[in-house]
């Protein structure tokens, strides 16, 4: 036993050091610089992915619980205890669902390149993508309140919000939005708010094919568009007024 212990400390320490160095990235809201020259690595390590992907199949029956995780581990051929592999337990299951559904968006929604001569606007693309993401919750919607409760635990609020922000970023990116000024922030913030409100609404929705959720989403998006138009209109007016005031003064011979 002793020689093993002697051999061990350094690698273990090294591992701790490595993990503590990685720690800040946890709370990093935005992944940085996206490259097109190589494919992205898979979002989860193989073992975690194997357990979680099986566990997610048990969520409709068992909810976002340790039971679902254990069953998933068994299905993947691991011991029940191997769920200790997931340091955040059930939240990792919720997180897996969120990450996989976010990454699935780019394949599940395709926009034909203006075939019929009619171009699809960014606004309607955002609507389509948001709706597609909400529909991805359909199989587990009766369990989604549990997930929301888990995400609302103080420890998990920051990663949940970060994931929400990443989803909003993904939707605007896939919709082809290229604005890179302050509206970059307001767009993501409003979409995050709208998405999370609609998601909560959807857990209560008993209408067929979630018709009411769709109406709710449309109403929120329309409100947002009206607000955006009003703010944009005011900004344009203020800009115009200031410029013309300066020009009037210049025309009067003032040296400004």
């Amino acid at each position: 036993m002793a020689p093993i212990r002697l051999a061990n400390p350094a690698p273990v320490l090294g591992a701790f050091r490595a993990s503590s160095r990685q720690a800040p990235r946890w709370n990093c809201m935005w992944r940085s610089y996206h490259s097109y020259d190589y494919n992205q690595p898979p979002p989860f390590p193989a073992a975690e992915s194997a357990i979680l992907s099986r566990a997610i199949e048990h969520v409709p029956g068992y909810g976002f619980t340790v039971d679902a995780l254990k069953l998933g581990a068994r299905d993947a051929g691991y011991l029940d205890a191997s769920t200790n592999l997931l340091p955040r337990g059930v939240f990792d299951l919720v997180d897996y669902h969120l990450v996989m559904q976010r990454l699935a968006l780019k394949d599940s929604v395709q926009f034909p390149d203006a075939e019929g001569g009619k171009k699809v606007g960014v606004g309607s693309k955002v609507r389509t993508l948001t709706l597609a993401r909400l529909r991805a919750n359909e199989p587990i919607i009766h369990r989604w309140q549990e997930a929301l409760a888990i995400m609302a635990q103080p420890t998990y609020i920051p990663p949940s919000l970060a994931e929400l922000a990443r989803l909003a970023d993904e939707i605007w990116f896939l919709a082809g939005d290229t604005s890179v000024d302050t509206s970059w922030y307001t767009k993501r913030a409003t979409l995050s708010a709208i998405y999370s409100a609609t998601e909560v609404f959807m857990t209560q929705d008993k209408s067929s094919n979630f018709k009411e959720t769709e109406e709710f989403l449309d109403a929120r998006l329309e409100d947002n568009m009206k607000l955006g138009k009003a703010v944009g209109g005011f900004a344009a007016w203020a800009d115009f007024t200031a410029h013309s005031a300066v020009n009037v003064l210049r025309s009067k011979g003032m040296r400004i």
């Binding site: 979002p43 989860f44 390590p45 990450v99």
Partner: peptide, 23 residues
């Protein structure tokens, strides 16, 4: 066969990889 994934996962698999980042 069940221990080998437990060990490396504690030591090596950081949460990093899930945010689309390279090693």
């Amino acid at each position: 066969p069940l221990l080998d994934f437990l060990a490396p996962s504690i030591c090596t698999s950081g949460p990093r990889s899930r945010f689309h980042s390279s090693a």
